[in-house]
Design a protein around this nucleic acid. Structure first.
Length: 198
DNA sequence: CAAGTGATTAGC
DNA sequence: CTAATCACTTGC
């Protein structure tokens, strides 16, 4: 079942980041074929008060504008000249919180993923934020897309992640964020081989 | 370990 | 306008 607006608009972004683990991210291919992966790693970005967030201090620019949209909107941006990053906007409209999806366990459409990302080992297919965007075909044309609409979405297929299987720790690549760099706002499935390596 | 790549941003 | 930076990946 597709996640609905109410899942995303809750005020507790850390809770949404944890509950996103185990959900299926689905991006249908041009032919309609389902290409999907199960979320195994996320990071929460807590808006205006979070030094690591693009929206720190309520910064509003052309890029960050999407973060101010209502929960359940896709925030996709481009970094390092070659990689896209897929985020889920959370909370109410005007509150720039978001959750970065850092890694997936491939579920459907593996052949297409291997075509888009020729790697020796399937573990390298979606085990990183840039990798999974490439494998699922997510680019900036998805920025601002409605996750309760039709181009891409997250769904609950009944799989459950027990609290004991969830680990948390500092976020990756945010050393510039001072004391916020140490906050344990990264969540992952303990022992899952598709979690990005560090 | 460092290069690569180009959008984005802050600072003139 | 210019220069620095960047929520990364890959290959040496």
């Amino acid at each position: 079942m597709r996640l609905e607006r109410e899942f995303y608009t809750r005020a507790d972004t850390l809770l949404v980041a944890r509950e996103l683990l185990g959900k299926l991210l689905v991006v249908p291919a041009a032919g309609g074929e389902r290409v999907s992966g199960r979320v195994v790693e996320t990071e929460a970005y807590l808006g205006a008060g979070d030094k690591a967030s693009h929206a720190f201090g309520n910064r509003r620019t052309a890029r960050t504008e999407t973060m101010y949209a209502v929960g359940g909107t896709a925030y996709v941006y481009f970094v390092y000249g070659m990689h896209h990053q897929f985020n889920v906007v959370t909370g109410a409209e005007g509150s720039p919180h978001a959750v970065l999806v850092r890694a997936l366990e491939p579920a459907e459409g593996l052949e297409l993923m291997r075509l888009r990302r020729p790697v020796k080992d399937d573990r390298a297919l979606t085990s990183g934020p840039g990798k999974l965007c490439r494998a699922l075909g997510i680019d900036r044309s998805f920025d601002g897309a409605d996750l309760t609409g039709g181009r891409l979405w997250l769904e609950d297929d009944g799989a459950r992640v027990r609290p004991g299987e969830v680990a948390s720790g500092p976020r990756v690549g945010v050393a510039y964020a001072g004391e916020d760099a140490l906050r344990p706002w990264r969540f992952w499935n303990k022992g899952n081989p598709f979690v990005s390596r560090r």
